[in-house]
Amino acid sequence: MRAFTYTQATDASAALHAALQNPEAKYIGGGTNLVDLMREEVERPNEVIDINALPFSQIEVLPDGGVRLGALARNSHTANHPLVRQRYPVLAQAMLSAASPQLRNLATNAGNLLQRTRCYYFYDTTAPCNKRQPGSGCAAIHGVNRIHAILGTSEQCIATHPSDMAVALAALEAVVQVQGANGTRRIAMEEFHRLPGDHPEQDTTLGRDELITSIDLPALPSTANSLYFKVRERPSFAFALVSVAAVLELEGEQIKNVRLALGGVAHKPWRARTAEEALLGKPATAENFRQAAEAELQTAIAYEHNAFKIELAKRTIVRALLTLAERQLLA
């Protein structure tokens, strides 16, 4: 590991200032991803700025009825918080399906959004990787790509975003609150993560001169139901092959409101707008769910080892929606 200096920031402006002073510095929150990356020499900061003392750990109700999740609140605390469990089951489920209890106890909410891909080749500094080293090539496209993306890929990168939490946040239309040197701004969840395009080294639209302060959840209609459905190779401590965060609101048997986001399939949480549009106003039936899933996955591209994800994604969408619909029709 490269030698680094350790700085403790006591307020946001000091943290921002320290980062702007040194382009090789990195913020550290829980460190559950950064320390791994440093050990693997993927990240080589010469300074680590500890932001754990910043006052961003709150979980509170907002005036508009939504809930604010502090950037530094720990994943386990957030997932188990009554406000989250009661109002946003999809988020609690997603967060608790991720990593391990030890990691969740340390990992912060903002850090969860900012974690890097688990693409094998990104983690192996002896392999080419456009995300780690722009212009070096992509080892995954013609390599072992079982865990890679099927939607929104580019010739530069087929990595996926690994977060479960972010998938739920996409379905909940969360807003990321950001503080910069020149004030604050709000980034819609859908705009927060990027598709790889020609710049896979950029995971998000967050600027180097910005810090996440909170993630705000808008209120959900009381009649809406939500869940997170994650398919993985091992029942714990495994990233999603495919996951679906779904919010569904029925009126009778008609779909009044639906929001879907997919994990494990793209460089960002994949908001399934095509499927949503296909479903609005339609009866909540297995056939309609399947048709919507087919429409959503029409643009999917398979690589050598991940073709199964296309069918799996469709089935996972259908299963998630059927489960929610059955629950509401029974209620």
Binding site: R118, Y120, Y121, D124, G143, V144, F237, F239
Partner: peptide, 9 residues
């Protein structure tokens, strides 16, 4: 190369 040479993968 062994792409999944870690306890994570």
């Amino acid at each position: 190369r062994i792409p999944n040479a870690s306890l994570s993968e």
